[in-house]
Write a protein that binds this DNA or RNA. Structure first.
Lengths: 149, 149
DNA sequence: CTTCATAGTGAGTGACGCTCACTATCGTAG
DNA sequence: CTACGATAGTGAGCGTCACTCACTATGAAG
């Protein structure tokens, strides 16, 4: 019966997900951002200036929801709606200077967080962790839990 | 500069977080549960029959929010509000038979998921993963990200 | 030019978090 | 025993974020 070991492992992973989720969704308020609006900024960073429909597809949410998120981000000055070339129905959602600064700060924060998490870890243990994570991710992939990217 | 390795590691962990979160919050609808109501059921399982204020404290949410969650769970038949001994202000939130069945199914699902994740993993790799996770969790603890339990 | 598809929004709903004000009850100090 | 402050829970109302459905404006293709 390895069930107990498996359960203990899963408990650790679940605890980690809870802690990281809480942490990520903290501090955003300080920047005037909400979790979903931040998620849109990350997506916009990945895709570059995009139509709202493309953001909706990438984030796997309804187009109508993107309208609301972009409304909020425009109101708070993180993005702007520009003209979309050759299609007057669509907008090109684009970072403002403030938005660019914000996403770059988020990226820097993430790098710093990675450093804090791993810098003190013996490299053997780090490698073992990575191997285990890759295994788990591959298993999840095989189970049909695919990466959104 | 190990920054790239750290970033890759953090990316894996974040991806895992996202995938597991999505997965956990799927399928709940099939049981007629929402994420927060399910979270309350898990808490109730841990604490045993409780006053709403104790659920609020354990879940780190406002008492008013618990009122709403319990309202929903009572309406859908998962819990009931019983008399609290020696205090007529409070309720003793208690599993119904349906609620008990539901939480036991969730527990069984979780055990099964643990099996699916780890059963095929070489035990050395599993141990390496656990060591890495323990290290990360200890680091998070040191950074002030404490377990909610 | 007519017809069908597409991009986005208005209107409405529901879950889930919050605060503030309020009621009912408890517990304790006179 | 009574008055007073603390506690348990709820009503009212707000904000975010997800959804659907119906609609407008525009694009694209016959």
């Amino acid at each position: 019966m390895d069930d107990a070991r498996f359960a203990a492992g899963l408990d650790r992973i679940i605890l980690l997900t809870v802690l990281l989720n809480d942490d990520m969704n903290r501090g955003l308020a300080a920047d005037g951002l909400t979790p979903s609006r931040t998620s849109l900024l990350w997506t916009l960073r990945r895709l570059g200036p995009s139509a709202q429909k493309d953001l909706a597809a990438a984030m796997k949410i309804a187009p109508r929801t993107v309208t609301g998120l972009v409304d909020g981000l425009v109101a708070t000055g993180f993005v702007s709606r520009e003209a979309y070339p050759d299609d007057r129905r669509a907008f090109l959602v684009t970072f403002t200077a403030k938005g660019l600064t914000a996403i770059e700060k988020l990226e820097a924060d993430q790098r710093e967080f990675g450093r804090q998490l791993f810098a003190a870890m013996p490299s053997e243990r780090f490698d073992g962790l990575m191997a285990g994570l890759d295994d788990v991710l591959a298993t999840l992939h095989a189970l049909g839990l695919r990466s959104p990217f």
